[in-house]
Amino acid sequence: MIKRIGYVLLVALLISSCGAKKRRNTQRNGAPVVVDNGRPVKKHKNEMPTVGEDGLYPMPEDTGRFERFPISDTQEYIETFAEIAQYEMRAFGIPASITLAQGILESGSGRGELTLKTNNHFGIKCHTGWEGEFDFHDDDAKGECFRKYNHPMYSFRDHSLFLTSRSRYAFLFDYKPNDYKKWAHGLRQAGYATDRQYPQKLIALIERYDLDRYDREVVRNAPIEIAQVDPPKQSLTTHTVSKGETLYAISRKYDVPVDEIKQMNNLSDNIISIGQVLQIRRGR
């Protein structure tokens, strides 16, 4: 009788351990979603929306021309990705020159550590709601969550979706699609980068490498039919300031510009106090 009980317990233990292994494997595979605590958890594999049924332009056929790695210099980077930048301009109205200049600057011409391990050419972080793959990289803070793509083309498409689906960038599309100077200053104004010299750096790259020739080609050869992307729903939340927090850190947490937080809370400077409750409007 004792042997029989022991056998039953052993079988139950084996079944339980197999189930635990399956759960661990399921959790390890797939892609993440960023939850309220800011840490990604595995959920399911994400496929970038690229087909016409979603109202978006399909991606061009991959013949390997976007994967010339390692890229030796900036000129080769331009030659590699100019076509996809023009493709995205025709589909979404973002100047190809701006896309290329941002890619050069953010990815180190495709040779930066983050880009080499994630195919992330634009330094786009996970942000709340991201359900694609990810990796961690030191940026403004240690071990920040960055989006990861299985192909460089998807990084360029996600860059287009990122700009067209967030209301704070909407005013950029009132500019002419070949007015790279206004776009460069507008990106800084909208909070894409905190570097005060960001517009000047983009403009310098565009003019050094004559990147606006790609804009002129698109405008000259075909009308731009901008894909319609539904803007994210705006949600209003509150944030209680904790010890050591700054307006900049809070703006990065919620993916909103510092100036917008100041405007919403009638702040004349960047001084905040522990326990202060701030109103935050964020897009999802």
Rank of each mutant, 00 (worst) to 15 (best):
K3P: 07
D62I: 03
R157Y: 05
K3N: 11
A82P: 02
D269C: 05
G55T: 00
R216H: 14
L116K: 14
L14M: 13
M153C: 01
Q102Y: 03
N266M: 00
V229I: 15
E207P: 02
K243D: 08
S109P: 06
Y169W: 12
M89H: 14
S97K: 05
F69I: 07
V229T: 13
K21C: 10
V8M: 10
Y192V: 11
L211D: 04
A91S: 14
L13W: 12
E245N: 08
D54R: 08
T240Q: 14
L278H: 05
I271G: 00
V51S: 08
E67V: 11
M1I: 04
L172D: 08
P199T: 05
Y248I: 13
D135N: 14
R252M: 10
A31I: 01
Q86K: 15
Q228M: 08
R111Q: 14
S242R: 09
Q276R: 15
K181I: 15
A141T: 05
K253S: 07
L14R: 04
R213F: 02
R216Y: 11
R68M: 08
R166Y: 05
V34W: 05
L100C: 09
H239R: 03
F136G: 03
N120Y: 01
L10A: 14
D269R: 12
A31T: 02
N266P: 04
S107C: 04
R65F: 10
A141V: 07
L247G: 02
E133D: 15
G143E: 11
E106A: 01
E144M: 14
N29T: 09
F156P: 09
